[in-house]
Amino acid sequence: MDVIVVLEWAFDAVLGLGLLWLAWRTLNSPDLFKAIVLFISFGLLMALAWVRLNAPDIALAEAAIGAGLTGALLLAALARLRTTTDNTMPAQLPAGSWFQRGLLIVLLSGSAAGLGYAVWILPSHTSGLSMAVTANLDVSGARNPVTAVLLNFRGYDTMLEMIVLLLAVLGIWSLGGLPPRPERPAVAVLDTFSRFLIPVFILAAAYLLWVGADAPGGAFQAGSVLGAAGVLLLLSGWRPGVRLMQWPLRLALTIGAITFIILGVLTLLYEQQLLAYPVAQAGRMIILLESLATVSIAVTLAILFLGESPDPEEKK
């Protein structure tokens, strides 16, 4: 038994040191490509750390979004940067004087020490709201406490988060989007590979969505897997048609938020409280919200990767 405890301790120590080392290397790397690869590895290790902290929901999200899609977005941005600028090296920041550096080091290590102490004296285990969540789980419509919090107890926060995603797309489109990716003939391997993988992605997303009610999973995880399928399709040369890029795309991007708002208005009218689901209907409403939110999240992530504005003639 003792051996296992020591092993776990050693594993955690290696994980923690590895995270710090990767973070430092990422920030320190002069080569942007290398920095992105290091960032992706950082995300994967971070997902492992969440597993060690017994937070499998966050681990899934971190692996899919933190490492996977963010990595893909960064690589796509780097590829576009290389086509528009010839220098791949970031400009060297002017090094401050010794006094400035010393002051910065003193201030930062002081704050770090203070924060470290504050975390050190935290009680090692507090129940927080988990008692209240467990007590109300039966009437929440979900058996996974994370889903119950995200979609029911704090569904209002999730509604606002859907708008955050929409704003990200609006922000990119408002700048005129990126120039269209140069058409490349599909590589045979990628093409065949995608044909096999995409159905698997869709199946995995559906499973994650469905299982989210009882176990780790849910709209954000399912949406990011589905979004990754979209990225794969885009990489293998598929482009949504012009007609698809108009209102069907806009509807898909907003359908999650629209569902939240409609349910909000209905519950306000019939229950006098925003997003207060009747107990008998709660499970069905959560599944409805999650399914449509999955669509919005997946389309948002894929569209962020595409980066093109829907109206090419409106380019600035």
Partner: peptide
């Protein structure tokens, strides 16, 4: 004051 979702603080918002 409005209790979103009918839960009430601190569980709800």
């Amino acid at each position: 004051r409005h209790t979103v979702g009918g839960w009430g603080a601190p569980l709800g918002i």
